[in-house]
């Protein structure tokens, strides 16, 4: 979250991605950085133990929302 917020503040569009159990800490970090409305993407847990194929599937699932947060119109 911190990296995403700092990139955005540096003028670089960014999307932070968290797994669902990290929603509360993610919101807390956004508040700590004075950016409570920071938009980020939640994805199901876990990610660390996914296979390469599953990681690719997850990216495909997330891509529309990533583009939406970035403000990209398809």
């Amino acid at each position: 979250m911190a990296d995403g917020i700092l990139l955005e503040r540096g003028g670089i569009p960014a999307v932070s991605i968290c797994t669902e159990p990290f929603k509360i800490p993610a919101d807390a970090m956004a508040r700590a950085y004075g950016f409570p409305g920071f938009q980020y993407l939640l994805t199901p847990h876990p990610v660390a133990s996914l296979t390469l194929v599953e990681v690719r599937e997850r990216v495909v699932q997330m891509t529309p929302r990533i583009l939406e947060i970035l403000g990209v119109e398809e």
């Binding site: 990290f22 509360i24 800490p25 807390a28 970090m29 700590a32």
Partner: peptide
């Protein structure tokens, strides 16, 4: 530091 469990302490 506000490092409360289930918030900033993960």
């Amino acid at each position: 530091f506000g490092l409360r469990p289930r918030e900033l302490d993960q």
